[in-house]
Design a protein around this nucleic acid. Structure first.
Lengths: 205, 205
DNA sequence: TGACAAGTGGAGATGACCTCCATATTTTTT
DNA sequence: AAAAAATATGGAGGTCATCTCCACTTGTCA
């Protein structure tokens, strides 16, 4: 699956065109309203070519989603390298809301694919979960986040935010969810009185 | 608002049979794996009859979901009448997780229908949101819940929990989400250095 | 009981998804 | 450079779930 089999020149071009066109359609929010065959025409290839490259609609979504996720993960690592752990986590989560807000199509895509049990975007989801897990783990080591909850809970909340992007007051509510999660994540007996300096920030596995 | 048009006897019976059978199939988790026509056969009616009563798969889901939601709402009101507001809210949310856990099919149904923008279960969703809003509002009046976030945020988290019920550690993570939400919902100034004897987060079983 | 309204059921139209293979294009060999 | 081999294309057509339509059955009312 990691074996980058050398694709023929025109095949590679078609693949790129398909992904590029898919991204357009995603952002327009029309991805799931479009017949898959019509999408092939729209991209200027035959249905056979489309199916050769992406056996299912979900596979194509995964390909686009992969690029998005890579960018998001890069951003997460960058934040983690330049900010205190708790702040990095908060900034990343706020940024996720911004991102979903800006790319409406992505939200719907994620929501739909999450509901599907095909697990087509398991890979992308896993990558995203990994960076969230890392961000949380770092904050836990810092003592700025409680250690009795799993990062998976944050992922669930994120899913909820994506899934509900149709709601009228989506943006405000999404921000509220992040606020609640972040506040809830703080250690119960926070170091208001015990102003212990956080110094441990070494080796991250 | 719902004009109870007197349905003919056999029509009413068929409708009841369809809903009863649908509930069975839901709980078995097979609802979306079954051809809609086959479901008609399974219930012992013709496809025409099925479509007459429930124009779409979502409409049938809505009908089943309606019963579930009614029960849930009743429970919420009962809790609100017998417990302190904050406790009522917490108990209800924990109960929701229990309920989703017990009725796996419902979770998948909700997740799928949420993703669909048809809004087929908008009615049920609205009812559920109303009781959550009431529970939160009561707690806010009590001063046991902060007043700067909307109940919609709780709904989003609940959606996330439903949508993610496929995850391996679903139960524990769902409980964590509730814990985070509840802790996050408490007024910021509530627990400072005050080591009150709450928040004993015992391990999840 | 007879007449009318309401409901039924399943055959078939509709339309989306996906496969197959004759043709076209790229790459390799001589 | 030309031919052969390998690889990719594309769209016609098969397959299958969804939904509609109407001749017939069942229930209701006088």
């Amino acid at each position: 699956m990691i074996a980058d089999k050398p694709l023929r020149a025109d095949a590679q071009r078609n693949r790129d065109v398909l992904i590029a066109k898919a991204r357009e359609v995603f952002d327009a929010g029309d991805f799931f309203d479009l017949r898959f065959d019509d999408f092939a025409r729209l991209a200027g290839v035959g249905t056979g070519t489309l199916y050769r490259h992406f056996p299912t609609r979900e596979a194509l979504a995964e390909a686009v989603y992969h690029g998005e996720v890579a960018a998001l993960c890069d951003r997460a690592r960058q934040l983690q390298a330049t900010l205190p752990a708790a702040e990095a986590l908060a900034t990343f989560l706020r940024g996720m809301v911004d991102h979903i807000d800006a790319h409406e199509g992505l939200a719907r895509t994620l929501a739909t694919l999450m509901a599907d049990r095909s697990g087509a975007l398991a890979e992308g989801g896993r990558a995203l979960e990994q960076v969230v897990t890392d961000l949380v783990a770092a904050a836990v080591r810092d003592g700025t986040v409680r250690d009795d909850v799993d990062a998976g809970a944050v992922m669930m909340a994120l899913h909820g935010i994506s899934a509900a992007h149709d709601r009228p007051g989506w943006r405000a509510e999404a921000d509220d969810v992040i606020t609640l999660m972040l506040d809830g994540l703080r250690p119960p007996a926070m170091t208001r009185c015990d102003t212990r300096s956080h110094a441990a920030s070494e080796g991250s596995g």
